[in-house]
């Protein structure tokens, strides 16, 4: 296990080094001089030179890459050109809102996807199976920005059942101000017992979370179905069936647990993808997360901020992948020798 652990960690470190290098390369390719972008169009040559000096733009590329990596490791992710704040600070403010959205979406996705997968596997090749496969295929094929627009217009605009945009009713900041612990609004509201903010957040969260949940729910339903059908052929499942357990009971009590491994790792892998997919939804619902920050950064060609968002998501991906592999290594000894 220790050998597997070190090898897998070593791989992850290599990938992170590659990710940093690639981000740096893409950043350096951006047209337009970052010094000009920082100092403004009317800067004097002296101000420009000062900006170049400040960002070390005159150093050789290797030195710049090394300095960049060293600064990243030290928590200095550069200064955003459009907020004029440290990127690391901006990210810690924006990321919790994205996490809140994607977390809620994944809860919805599991709650919908797993039962649908069980239903499809139980009535394999029947009408329920066909309709689950059809629906889950629709869910993974729908353009998320379009779904967000449709859902917003119908349920918030026309029917008025849900708020149109935002994270919670901002007038609540005066009547019941929120004490911030985790920056995840719904968690903070819950632990401080701030019910007005809690219900308002829940209400605002409903539509965007449903939209972000569509893709993971579809994938989870398909995966659960496939894993259960695969598991149904196993001897232990057939034995329980022979012992007289009903079809549904066999699936839920005996086949679902061994099938949970692949489904769990799938959820971890979908996580980083859902964050990025969430960007498009955040833009529509004006959700104060990473997506809004990324959109503003791209509009202002804010390279340090773009690089920061890219790095954060890539690190999340590497991290969740590593976690999945390690957990599977613990659960299944065969994985370690691969």
């Amino acid at each position: 296990m220790l050998r597997y652990l070190t090898r897998r960690l070593g791989q992850a470190v290599l990938v992170v080094a590659g990710v940093v290098t690639l981000t740096f390369t893409v950043m350096r390719l951006v047209p337009g001089d970052p010094a000009v972008a920082f100092a403004g169009p009317r800067a004097t040559p002296a101000e420009l030179a000062a900006a170049r000096e400040r960002f070390g733009l005159d150093d050789p590329l290797w030195t710049q890459l090394w300095n960049y990596a060293r600064d990243l490791a030290g928590g200095d992710w550069g200064t955003s050109l459009h907020t004029r704040q440290p990127v690391a600070r901006d990210l810690t403010l924006a990321f919790p809102a994205s996490l809140e959205l994607v977390g809620a979406a994944l809860v919805v996705a599991v709650a919908a996807g797993v039962p649908l997968g069980v239903l499809a596997a139980r009535f394999k090749a029947g009408l329920p199976d066909l309709s689950v496969r059809f629906t889950s295929m629709l869910a993974v094929s729908v353009p998320v920005f379009w779904l967000a627009l449709v859902v917003q217009t119908v349920f918030a605009g026309n029917l008025g059942w849900f708020p149109v945009a935002g994270e919670y009713d901002s007038s609540l900041d005066r009547t019941s101000p929120l004490t911030v612990y985790t920056d995840i609004t719904i968690v903070d509201a819950l632990i401080t017992g701030n019910w007005p903010v809690f219900t308002s957040t829940l209400w605002h969260l409903a539509l965007p979370a449903l939209v972000v949940a569509a893709y993971p729910a579809g994938v989870i339903a398909q995966m659960t179905r496939a894993a259960l059908i695969e598991e149904s052929g196993q001897d232990h499942v057939r034995l329980s069936r022979a012992l007289g357990f009903g079809r549904t009971a066999v699936l839920v009590r005996f086949a679902l647990r061994p099938a949970a491994g692949p489904v769990l790792s799938l959820i971890a892998l979908v996580f980083a993808y859902a964050i990025v997919n969430g960007f498009l939804v955040e833009a529509v619902f004006n959700w104060p997360g990473l997506g809004r920050y990324a959109a503003a950064s791209i509009r202002s060609l804010d390279t340090p901020a773009i690089a920061g968002v890219t790095l954060l998501v890539a690190l999340l991906y590497v991290g969740s992948n590593l976690l999945v592999d390690l957990v599977q290594g613990v659960l299944d000894p065969r994985v370690r020798t691969r």
């Binding site: 990938v15 590659g18 990710v19 290098t21 690639l22 980083a272 993808y273 964050i275 990025v276 997919n277 960007f279 968002v309 890219t310 998501v313 890539a314 991906y317 590497v318 992948n321």
Partner: peptide, 9 residues
Amino acid sequence: VFLAFPALL
């Protein structure tokens, strides 16, 4: 390394 970047990003 390339897989670590989501396609859209």
